[in-house]
């Protein structure tokens, strides 16, 4: 049941996107997020969506696999959307559809909600695509490399990157272990499904304690194993995987520059977010 979490799940295949430099991909994701947030009308978001679809196709990752990443935070998206729908504090020109106590639903709030949900979805899908096409190791290498300048202010960049990659590496092991402990305690009559929040939290103690003990044991083992393999910090260490920008990354760079420019243009020359209401009214003659 814990196995279908998309986090850190690399989708192994060969593609243009897989072969890009992880640093470039990280920068592109930042550019992509910027694009999502500067877009202030639907055309901009549609452009971002098209860009995303283009990249998914380019990455040769099945759409279903990418979409599955929403599952984890679907609740969050729905929750924020509902809050936004009900409590959107609009301006004076709002076309109010329903009003009750402090709740107001207006055309503006509906539009805004859809807009927000789209942004969140695009955000999640884009970052999921990054983790699907980049191994955790490459990702941490990328982050380490991008953060390198911080070394000069004594920021432990290498250690941080190593901690991240080890954490990622141990997630599957710990999940497997969690499943096994849950089964073992269920076999002893434990019930994790019934009762209120507090009761359920209490029921998790027989799982969490063995898990914690095991995590410490693993850490100790791993420490020995790393020592035995001559680990002694960042000093004098070489790196096997060299990150190099290639023509792919250059193309990507041009692509994202174009995307952001496009969105800025759409923002400037096309209608604002709510003008769609006016447009719809025009179309349907309301």
């Amino acid at each position: 049941m814990l196995n279908d979490v998309t986090f850190g799940q690399y989708y192994p295949t060969k593609s243009f996107v897989h072969n890009m430099d992880p640093r470039a991909k990280l920068l592109f994701v930042i550019a992509y997020i910027v694009a999502i947030f500067i877009a202030n009308n639907f055309f901009g978001l549609i452009l971002v969506t098209l860009a995303l679809i283009f990249f998914i196709l380019l990455a040769r990752v099945p759409f279903g696999r990418v979409l599955r990443s929403i599952k984890m935070i679907l609740f969050l998206i729905v929750f924020t959307a509902i809050l936004n729908l009900l409590f959107y504090a609009g301006g004076e020109n709002d076309i109010v559809l329903a009003q009750w106590w402090i709740i107001t639903i207006s055309w503006q709030s509906i539009i805004n909600t859809i807009f927000l949900a789209m942004r969140l979805l695009l955000l999640v899908l884009g970052t999921a695509l990054l983790t699907l096409t980049t191994t955790p190791v490459a990702l941490t290498d990328g982050i380490e490399s991008l953060l390198k300048p911080l070394k000069y202010i004594k920021f432990p960049v290498h250690e941080l990157a190593l901690i991240m990659s080890i954490a990622l590496r141990f997630i599957p092991s710990l999940m497997e272990e969690t499943n096994r402990i849950i089964s073992a305690q269920k076999a002893r009559g434990a019930n994790f499904e019934k009762g209120g929040l507090i009761k359920r939290a209490k029921a998790m103690i027989p799982v969490l304690i063995p898990l914690l003990v095991s995590a410490f044991r693993r850490a100790e083992d791993l420490g020995d194993a790393m020592d035995a393999r001559c680990y002694s910090g960042a000093k004098g260490r070489t790196k096997y995987k060299k990150l190099t920008f290639t023509w792919r990354d250059l193309l990507g760079l041009l692509f994202f520059a174009a995307l952001i420019t496009g969105i800025v243009l759409l923002n400037t020359y096309l209608l604002g977010r709510f003008d769609i209401i006016w447009q719809v009214q025009q179309w349907f003659g309301i």
Partner: peptide, 23 residues
């Protein structure tokens, strides 16, 4: 409890990296 990396070759590389073997 002995592997540090999520890909086999990166894990095998860990030791040589530590002792400063050229790439």
């Amino acid at each position: 409890n002995q592997t540090v990396a999520s890909v086999v070759e990166d894990d095998v590389a860990f030791g040589p990296e530590n002792i400063g073997v050229p790439r």
